[in-house]
Design a protein around this nucleic acid. Structure first.
Lengths: 225, 225
DNA sequence: TAGATTGTTAATCGATTAACAATC
DNA sequence: TAGATTGTTAATCGATTAACAATC
């Protein structure tokens, strides 16, 4: 294969807790770069993100990226490496299924465009929405999904339909050929292991918070008693 | 205190990976209850959610809830216990900050109302939106936030503003007195440890998927070579 | 009864953290 | 130089899984 030792090292799989933090690091360095900073230490990065400096160095170790003694990491270079590792250095084609409030909100979402996600189509089974426009895109019927996914080699689909329809839509997306799914619905999707699923956890996140604040409240009243 | 041994056991803190799965279990049992099932085994639950039966039993063990040999768990009772543990047995008051597309989409979101989340206010700093209505609620200026949070003892705030404003809004929510924050923006919030933060991970989730599908694609082409 | 399933402990696995030599 | 900081290994911690007695 002619691969150098160095490349082999870089290619080993990054554990998903680390990937999740890398996305945070990228948001962070993006932000501090904008504010004009040039260098960041593992200590400062950790403090700002609520982590330990050991975790930060361990994570960056996966990137096969080097910092400098006494100065830390070059923000510009770290941003470039993180962007590349996360696959954000090239545009990424996505589709949105569901043109209700949530789907339309995402289609119009500035952050996504800024990060290089290109929305190649928005679909809805509701005939009444067909041919209406959202953010420059014409809403299409579900029949058109497969052709669009193939035409643009779309790798990621966003599910923004009611939870009752989520599994059905997920199946259609997978059949059409997407490799990853972002699920905004409150539903447990059952998909082949080859397809990556990320939950946006809106409803589930609120449940979790509800649980946490309840426990916290209980502790407080117990402490007062 | 007169607490029985049993109660003490139930009160011990549930680790957050477990809480996250409990929310999944609840969605699941809610669904199968609707379909008329009465009993579910740890084996079937695990298979449907992509877990091991050991994990399911270990998790339910935290609930201080008993199943039945040979039959598994009563779906009705499990649903009740999960609902209570997650704090969804009583209505939960929330506010939404940001009345853009995303904020309005959430305000109109059926799942949240169905789960017992009561939206007590929607706020935006944009004067042009003031007094407009969303889903029966009048959009209010940020000045009104604190009074509403106090009046209804709101414990959770949803951040649906552009990422540049997220930290500022988070600070305002915490100052107003919320105990938990659901963050829909792509920003790393820095808040007191006493405040629980859950990330909806829309942009971050897409990054993660982008990273995963890219690696998967690389593997495939490597396999072909 | 034999088989299925739970409840619970102990073993395993993986992620985080501590430690520290190397370096500037 | 002394001090700060990285890169990397080893130790620790916590979560998941395996195992199995108890039970129906």
């Amino acid at each position: 294969m002619g691969m150098t030792k160095r490349k082999e090292k870089a290619a080993r799989k990054i554990p998903s807790p680390v990937v999740r933090r890398l996305a945070k690091y990228r948001t962070y360095v993006n932000d501090v770069a904008f504010r004009g900073l040039k260098w960041i230490t593992s200590k400062d990065l950790a403090a700002d993100l609520g982590l330990t400096n050991a975790t930060v160095r361990r994570d960056i170790f996966y990137l096969n990226f080097s910092g400098h003694t006494n100065r830390g990491y070059s923000i510009e270079n770290l941003e470039r490496v993180l962007t590349r590792v996360l696959g954000l250095h090239k545009e990424c084609d996505i589709v949105i299924v569901g043109a209700g409030n949530l789907g339309r909100a995402l289609a119009m979402h500035g952050d996504l465009a800024r990060m290089g996600f290109r929305i190649r189509g928005i679909f809805d089974s509701d005939k009444k929405l067909k041919r209406k426009k959202v953010s420059g895109l014409v809403i299409q019927s579900m029949n058109a999904l497969s052709a669009v996914v193939k035409k643009y080699a779309v790798s990621i689909g966003i599910i923004a339909v009611p939870s009752t329809a989520a599994q059905l839509v997920a199946n259609q997306l997978v059949k059409a050929g997407v490799r990853g799914v972002l699920n905004l619905a409150c539903a447990n999707l059952k998909l082949p292991k080859s397809v990556h699923v990320v939950e946006a956890r809106i409803a589930a996140g609120l449940s979790e918070l509800c649980c946490c604040v309840q426990i916290a409240a209980g502790r407080e009243s117990a402490a007062l008693a």
